[in-house]
Amino acid sequence: MITRRHLIASAAAATAGASLIRPFAAMAQNLTGDIYALDGTDTLSIHPISHASFVMTTPAGVIYVDPVGGGALYEALPAPDAILITHHHGDHFDPDTLAALTQRAGGPVPMITNPTVHEQLDPEVGAAATAMENGQNAELLGLPIEAIPAYNFTEERLQYHPKGRDNGYIIEVGGKRVYIAGDTEDTDEMKALEDIDIAFVPFNMPYTMTEAQAATGVGGFAPGVVYPYHYNDSDLDLFESLLSEQDVPTDVVRGTWYS
């Protein structure tokens, strides 16, 4: 398993073909983010924001994922060219934040949501929005995207995320496949994923899953890199330790969630 310590030590190798370039000092100073090499000379950058919100800068445009917290939280980053929303809970879907971002972008931006969120969108904000159901395929900014089921199956958690309602997403960017899990447990659908380069996986109780479930889920599909997110006070060290026991080639990246 490649550890974060190994990545820091080998950062100088990034220009020699390594897929992950980790500009830690720059990230802290100007929100450069974590930069990943794509096909050709293109790059993908990941900007963790807070909890389950983050921004991806891609060759096709800037994609906001589950933006909440108010428009001011995103002022240091470019305006969105597109928005992804996994489900309607307030830590993933905030109409006021969407309104502020839409205004900053100069009008409605392409948006993909699950059907529940789509029904709740303000017509002006959601004028360019598309609803996707589990298993459907579409494009966002010309990038292929698939809606992955995100749900609870443990009996005492069924009330939070019932099967069939909420989305995770796989989006393909320049030869990389990025999996955004949303709120879910370690479902069979998650563990059956293939060829995932970058993954965002939640764990916090009682809403999603335990550290052990998260490690089992990630171990099942063995992405190149996993960002733990939506973890609140969960034990990241425990998650990383349990994942390392599965002997999968996955790097755990503890993103700098700067708010």
Rank of each mutant, 00 (worst) to 15 (best):
D247Q: 15
V178N: 02
D247H: 15
K163V: 09
V252Q: 01
G182V: 07
T58N: 01
A11G: 04
A212N: 06
A14P: 01
V218S: 06
G168H: 08
L31G: 07
N30W: 14
V125I: 15
Y207H: 15
G40T: 02
T216V: 14
T184P: 09
D39F: 07
G220R: 12
L140E: 00
M1Y: 09
E211V: 09
G126D: 05
P149T: 08
A26M: 07
D186E: 13
E211T: 06
D94C: 06
T216A: 15
T32R: 12
H47V: 02
F24Y: 14
N114M: 10
D235M: 07
L44R: 04
D94Y: 11
M209C: 07
Y169I: 05
A212Q: 14
E133M: 13
I46N: 02
H87Q: 15
R22T: 03
D66W: 11
P144G: 03
H89S: 10
V218D: 08
R254G: 03
V248P: 05
M27Y: 08
P80T: 04
D42C: 03
A11W: 13
E189V: 09
Y227Q: 02
G182A: 03
N137G: 04
E146Y: 10
G219I: 11
S259P: 12
Y229A: 03
V65Y: 13
Y36M: 08
G217Y: 13
F153P: 03
R177A: 10
G71C: 09
P249Y: 12
T57Q: 10
L193K: 05
A12M: 07
I171T: 02
S19L: 13
A13I: 05
F24A: 11
I171S: 02
H6I: 08
L20Y: 15
R177P: 00
A129G: 03
A214Q: 05
Y36P: 00
E119H: 14
Q103S: 14
D197E: 08
I8E: 12
A18C: 02
T187C: 07
A100N: 07
Q246V: 08
P80K: 08
Y179N: 04
T102D: 06
L98K: 03
T187P: 05
R177D: 03
Y169M: 05
D197V: 01
G217T: 08
H47Y: 06
F153L: 11
M56D: 00
V226P: 00
W257R: 03
D197K: 06
Y160H: 14
V218H: 08
G126N: 08
E156Q: 11
E156S: 12
G90Q: 13
I46W: 12
L143Q: 06
V248E: 08
L38M: 03
M27P: 00
I145Q: 02
M205C: 04
P123F: 11
D247L: 10
Q136Y: 11
R5V: 09
T58M: 04
V225R: 01
F200N: 00
G71V: 09
P115I: 07
